[in-house]
Design a protein around this nucleic acid. Structure first.
Length: 681
DNA sequence: TACGTGGCGCTTTTT
DNA sequence: GCGCCACGTA
């Protein structure tokens, strides 16, 4: 039996926060909960973020060191905002606190222990597109002809593998469920997975799933690493727990195993990421996995007026699988019911929204306090045109992230390659930019580069700048000009190729990597600007994007950190950060998914039509429909004062003329007397 | 093997 | 009304 021995804390600062006064009793109970497992079920708008923020402050005030806290959130922005609020509450230094998304925390851990996980510290992070590229190469290499019989493309394989990893279910099961028409190929598909793994290893590249999975495996297999982080993270806080998947839940469990000091916060009614492997059974079963868990419920809603909340409560009612709860509004009754608006077609729908927004602005509303939400990004197309016509400025958190645009990824490929010369995807992307080099030549060139790289000592492949600040710096000795200059390239590409070799040498002289801002300048000036002019019709726009990227890059000293940001920061966070026009008055257009955690005074939910919302793709299973219903619940609960639910009766079908659309079933589930029907003519 | 043109099919959600 | 893919040509 080990002896229990406690180190005395240095004198804790005098308690400054009056928790009972600043929080409601339910919040306060959760915030001041004793150590040990805790499940906080916090309804929409109930002050979930506030609760977590105060919890962090509470721990710090009670002498817990910041470096012993791990805060896991759904976006990096959410983490940053919480910590800012903590700083405004108490004077403690919180620099040592680890916070961010599961992916970014995984990345941070793996950078430190890359070797133990079977990689080199300078590894690249692949996004979905990179993943598809490499999988297409794996398929080709395996000699599978996609011609004679239908075989899934890289895109589909990525989806299968990813879902399999994130849910911990075998490939054949995933294929049978999600792609039954490929069921007879499942053995062959499963065979490709180890090849994909091998290829990633050779390229020293990790995909998004690896950032979770490899981290978990590392904790499970390496006892010293596990013990280290278990000791470091004495208190674990998890936001949006309902959207964690199996790996994420296991990751938390592994870290918490030694002390069980884990507080998870979430709302099962807002679980909307099952297609990415999220499993809201994690939150429902938390008390089973942690039998000592205390459950705290926070059911007072501060956000929405009662009329909106009633609609929300009614909307979620039809779901069988949930913790029953009834949100109570503390806000004044405005006497204004949410509007149910039927419109002739989608054009009218767009006109209605635009007109109503103009009226709201005349009434003195701030455009930033208005949002239009929809199920899928393409639902917003007509509205965008209509808003433009009326001169109404809007900001979209678009489907395509800023960093996923071709020109951004192109210039990033240069940087990725010099940081990690084994990055097959980055190299090929770079090569294909040159005239006369397509997929085929790029592949051949890579084979030769790969051969030359293998002849170099292992250490030479590390970048000369430390991967993490303070780490010893290995001697980088890759001379890119020597490596590439004399390769055989198509004659059409020769000049550009030599230029490329010089440029790489310039941005990483003798393998010593320049800071990202300077690198970008060289890349653009030496090769990319010409390409951009030639290739894209909207040169000016894209060039401007690259300037923005350059400004952003200059904030970073280390290329590695900069590239990590590109890979791991979500669109929501970048759009604000890059445009920096936060104070511009703009209406927000957003998918419901991206609206998670946000709120506005006025919310329009458009395309409330059967087949659109709920999406027709979700209709074949009851779980699918329940998730759509939760999504609808999320949409409704974004609104503080005014809510409009609109749907067009006619749908203009591409090519096929028009078809009648039934209103969404979700509208029928809300009692008529809770909504006010608007007749629009 | 790279790249331009015509036909076809049809729209989720994202770290 | 648009993007993607396959095919044919330089």
């Amino acid at each position: 039996m080990a002896r229990e021995y406690t180190l005395k804390r240095h004198a804790a600062p005098v308690a400054r926060i009056d928790y009972a006064a600043e929080l409601n009793p339910q919040q306060c109970a959760a915030v001041t909960a004793p150590p040990g497992p805790a499940l906080v079920i916090a309804g929409a708008g109930s002050g979930k973020t506030r609760t977590l923020t105060y919890r962090v402050a509470y721990l710090l005030e009670n002498g817990v060191s910041a470096s012993n806290i791990l805060l896991l959130t759904f976006t990096n922005k959410a983490a940053r905002e919480m910590l800012e609020r903590v700083t405004s509450l108490i004077p403690n230094d919180i620099a040592g606190l680890w916070s961010g998304t599961f992916h970014s925390i995984g990345n941070r851990i793996l950078r430190r222990h890359a070797e133990a996980a079977g990689f080199r510290p300078g590894f690249s992070i692949m996004d979905r597109e990179d993943q598809q590229d490499i999988l297409d190469a794996v398929i080709a290499k395996a000699g599978i002809s996609t011609k004679d019989k239908r075989f899934p493309k890289g895109e589909v394989l990525a989806d299968i593998f990813s879902y399999s990893i994130n849910t911990g279910r075998p490939i054949d099961q995933v294929v049978a469920e999600k792609y039954p028409y490929f069921a007879m190929l499942d053995a062959q598909i499963a065979l490709l997975q180890p090849q994909y793994e091998e290829r990633k290893r050779a390229a020293n590249s990790l995909d998004f799933d690896d950032l979770l999975e490899k981290t978990l495996r590392l904790l499970q297999s390496d006892e010293s690493v596990r013990a280290f982080y278990q000791r470091q993270f004495q208190f674990i806080l998890v936001d949006e727990y309902q959207d964690t998947n199996k790996i994420q839940a296991d990751f938390i469990d592994a870290l918490a195993a030694a002390h069980d000091n884990v507080m998870v916060v979430g709302d099962d009614a807002q679980s909307i990421y099952s297609w990415r492997g999220a499993n809201f059974q994690n939150i429902l079963d938390f008390p089973k996995r942690y039998p000592k868990a205390k459950v705290y419920k926070i059911e007072t809603n501060y956000r929405s007026v009662p009329q909106i909340l009633q609609v929300a409560n009614a909307a979620i009612e039809a779901n069988v699988n949930q913790f029953k709860k009834e949100l109570q509004s503390v806000r004044q009754d405005t006497g204004l019911k949410p509007a149910l608006v039927a419109l002739g077609d989608s054009t009218q729908q767009a006109q209605f929204i635009a007109q109503r927004i103009l009226e709201l602005r005349d009434e003195g509303a701030d455009l930033r306090e208005i949002a239009v939400l929809y199920r899928a990004h393409y639902h917003s197309m007509e509205l965008q045109m209509e808003l433009t016509r009326h001169g109404i400025p809007f900001a979209i958190t678009s489907g395509l992230r800023f960093f996923e645009q071709a020109h951004v990824k192109d210039v990033a490929a240069f940087m990725k390659f010099v940081v990690n010369p084994r990055d097959e995807v980055a190299f090929k992307r770079m090569a294909r930019l040159l005239p006369g080099i397509g997929a085929r030549s790029a592949e051949q060139l890579w084979n030769e580069v790969d051969r030359r790289l293998s002849a170099l000592p292992l250490l030479a492949l590390e970048p000369a700048v430390p991967a993490t600040a303070g780490a010893p710096s290995p001697a980088g000795t890759v001379h890119f000009k020597e490596l590439l200059f004399d390769l055989k390239v198509p004659s059409k590409a020769l000049k550009a190729w030599q230029q490329l070799a010089y440029t790489l040498d310039e941005i990483a002289p003798a393998g010593k990597v320049n800071p990202p801002g300077a690198m970008l300048e060289s890349i653009i000036e030496a090769v990319y600007d010409d390409y951009l002019k030639e290739k894209f019709p909207n040169y000016d726009q894209r060039r401007e994007d690259l300037n923005v990227l350059g400004n952003y890059a200059r904030q970073y000293e280390s290329v590695q950190d900069f590239l990590d940001q590109l890979a791991l920061v979500s669109s929501l966070e970048t759009s604000n950060e890059l445009n920096a026009a936060d104070d511009d008055e703009m209406v927000n257009l957003s998918s419901v998914h991206q609206a998670k955690g946000l709120e506005w005074k006025v919310v329009f939910v458009i395309w409330m039509s059967e087949g659109m919302f709920p999406s027709s793709r979700s209709l074949d299973s009851s779980e699918g429909v329940e998730e759509e219903r939760r999504l609808f619940y999320v949409a409704v609960t974004r609104a503080r004062d005014e809510l409009y639910l609109t749907y067009p009766i006619l749908r203009l079908n591409a090519g096929y003329g028009e078809a009648f659309q039934r209103p969404s079933r979700f509208l029928g589930e809300v009692p008529k007397n809770l909504l006010e029907e608007w007749q629009v003519s």
